[in-house]
Design a protein around this nucleic acid. Structure first.
Lengths: 154, 154
DNA sequence: TATTGTTATACTCTATAACTATA
DNA sequence: TATAGTTATAGAGTATAACAATA
């Protein structure tokens, strides 16, 4: 049995969320807020990075020489949005814009040596964050959750 | 068996997402993006509302006479953020700011008659959106997903 | 002193539209 | 004509800090 206490007359009336608890989007949002907070506290304070920037860095690392427009497609954002992301990562010395050898309009994004080192460090932090966050679930539950989310997004 | 075709030499190389598919946050985000798109196409075009505004309206409707500061706490945003939300909903004639009888600093948020009608209509659209979105899942899977998301957010 | 609503301001993330240099 | 990167600009959504009125 869970710990309870006698409700006092001075208690604020319990808040109702109406229909929201019946909606998947409500729980999806709450889970994401919880994850962002956990990420900010664990990874963010140790490495000054957000989930979004980390995602960009991952895709750049996994696809050496990726053009900015291809990154935009992969992340499902506008080309123009990538400019500032690349500016930021370049200003921090994590990536380089290398002119393409075959298309002079195109910039190939590449991790720098610094970027490779930083990314390795951040990956360690992210994996620890992931393990900590999902410690509430069994491995089977974690896999079930991932699979259901994938099917929802398809 | 799934339909396939012979890969052509001109195919772009398959994009890799690196570590991202191993991370819950990646799938959480994709699911939320998919849900937002679906909401925008189904509910949004018929009622000019976003998931965020709908959530605010739900909590106001479910807690008549709620003060702005209490709404801010319930939605986990700053007091000052609520001002614009209330402005918007009031400008659309959906809610009213009623001066509190017991605390002259406080504004009690109340649905107008128009607001009640509109909310009822929007709720219908939202429930249809929810049913359509989750048609990919069995009722048991839907419940499992909700439960796992709740445990993740706890 | 603390709280309520408000304003002014700013920051992040994103999009649109127009520009240039290539293709 | 179409594409790659860029710029300028704007719109959500959010936060911080300060203020007047009130508790």
């Amino acid at each position: 049995m869970t710990a309870t206490r006698k409700p006092a007359a001075s208690d604020p009336p319990a808040m109702s969320y109406g229909l929201l608890p019946d909606l998947l989007g409500f729980h999806l949002r709450r889970a994401q807020v919880a994850l962002f907070r956990h990420f900010a506290h664990s990874v963010g304070t140790a490495a000054d990075i957000t989930p979004g920037l980390f995602g960009m860095l991952q895709v750049i690392a996994a696809n050496p020489g990726l053009a900015q427009s291809r990154l935009a497609e992969a992340m499902e954002v506008e080309r123009s949005t990538i400019v500032k992301v690349a500016d930021q990562l370049e200003a921090r010395g994590l990536i380089e814009r290398v002119p393409s050898a075959v298309d002079r309009r195109s910039h190939c994004l590449e991790l720098t040596e610094t970027g490779r080192g930083e990314l390795a460090r951040i990956e360690g932090l992210v994996l620890a964050h992931e393990a900590d966050l999902t410690a509430k679930l069994t491995p089977a539950e974690r896999q079930t959750l991932t699979r259901l989310l994938i099917r929802l997004a398809e």
